[in-house]
Amino acid sequence: MVERTRGLDIACHVLLILGGLLVCLPIWFAFVVGSHTTADVLTLPPPWLPGDRFFENAATAWQKGNLGRLFVNSFVVAVGIAGGKIAVSLLSAFAIAYFRFRWRMVAFWLIFVSLMLPVEVRILPTYEAVANVALPLQWLAGLAGLSVALDWNMMNSYGGLILPLIASATATFLFRQFFLTVPEELCEAARIDGAGALRFFRSILLPLSVPNMVALAIILFLYGWNQYLWPLLFTTDKSMATAVIGLKSLIPQSDSEPAWNIAMNAALLVMLPPVAVVMVLQRWLVKGLVDAGK
């Protein structure tokens, strides 16, 4: 800092602490509820301090929700979505920023427009698409007068959980913007050296994009981990569900015993991996976003 301004610095700390409290309050509440018995949680006003049953409840939640298996699924799905999104977006952005060809802007807008239709609306037809990926081929064959029974069912598979979610307008947009800030000289020099487009991509552009990719990977991992509606509808096999679904199945409904303590405990457990990712990697996240322009 250039100079010392005590009052302002203290004010800043106060503001940040307030902000932090605001953020943590709901989480604290989840922790408190998660550490009591069901009966204690039902009293009014609800308890403010944690009870002594946290680990017992955690064990119950873990076992009832089958969270062990579901965590593995969530992890695979989240990593798959993050990796897939980054891969397809990187390639698309490279094509759009570095090549002059017909349909360039068309391709860009085709990708961009995918932001504009909420998932809830296209659930039924998308489900059909996942249930039989070969459906469009079948129609084509039908048009050609052939009747073929193609059936490629991706339900209850990691592919079915990941693939429909990996197209990403925003990641493509991000990489495109980033490529636009890469000095022109790099590409010119590569061409003078006789390097082809792919070679330039692999040995120059890709290493430059690493911080950006890491930042994006963090964001996309969280996105993938917190998915709810799609995995719920696309999996019929319990062992292929994700952690958020396992959590949802523990949340009590009106006609049953209100075991909120177990549900809240499970909420904390399910929160844990993404929170750890944010805590440990926030430095990278910021760095990736800052470095994007250097």
Binding site: A97, Y98, R100, F101, R102, R104, M105, C187
Partner: peptide, 18 residues
């Protein structure tokens, strides 16, 4: 379609690769 907005000055002209 295929205009130059958002295109690098130093770019490639290939039809199939992109």
């Amino acid at each position: 379609a295929g205009g130059t907005a958002g295109l690098k000055r130093a770019h490639y002209r290939e039809a199939r690769l992109p």
